[in-house]
């Protein structure tokens, strides 16, 4: 059992874990009832899955070729920073364009407040 075999095992485990995570979360795309719950699956598990795969790739190139790839680190940082922002933007635009919550939802404290906010915005834009 030499070093490269151990590294191969570690990389394989990490890549497979990431793959299973992203597969399961895309399964959530089919099963979950509305867009808001789907965004939970899209932002959290997909991010973690891609993180695992990229870290596995990083470890592979580091120990097999002695190459510390700055591009890969930048990619990891970028995915980390942008995935939650994208998820937030999607559900925000969905709510503002009037996509309904699923029937099983129990609580919605935003609806009345959003009306007030929109009225305020219109009032300010007329004035200015």
């Amino acid at each position: 059992m030499n070093v490269s075999a151990i590294i191969e095992i570690i990389v394989a485990v990490m890549v497979l874990a990431g793959t299973v995570l992203s597969l399961l979360s895309s399964l959530g795309f089919i099963r979950l009832p509305d867009i808001y719950t789907r965004s939970h699956a899209a932002t959290k598990s997909v991010t973690l899955g891609i993180l695992f795969i990229l870290l596995g790739t990083f470890i592979y190139f580091w120990f097999m070729h002695g190459l510390i790839s700055i591009r890969l680190l930048l990619g990891i940082l970028f995915v980390f920073l942008t995935a939650p922002v994208a998820g937030h933007l999607v559900i925000r635009s969905a709510y503002r364009s009037g996509v309904k919550l699923s029937d099983t939802s129990v609580k919605d404290e935003l609806r009345d407040d959003l009306k007030k906010m929109k009225q305020l915005e219109q009032y300010h834009s007329k004035e200015g």
Binding site: L21, S25, D34, V106, D108
Partner: peptide, 26 residues
């Protein structure tokens, strides 16, 4: 927290019968 949350979401998705009550709060 990220690892914990992914496990929670996966647990909810792979449950054979889906009974969740989503909602919005302040």
């Amino acid at each position: 927290e990220l690892v914990k949350s992914s496990l929670v979401v996966i647990g909810q998705i792979t449950r054979p019968k889906l009974n969740i009550q989503p909602g919005i709060f302040k």
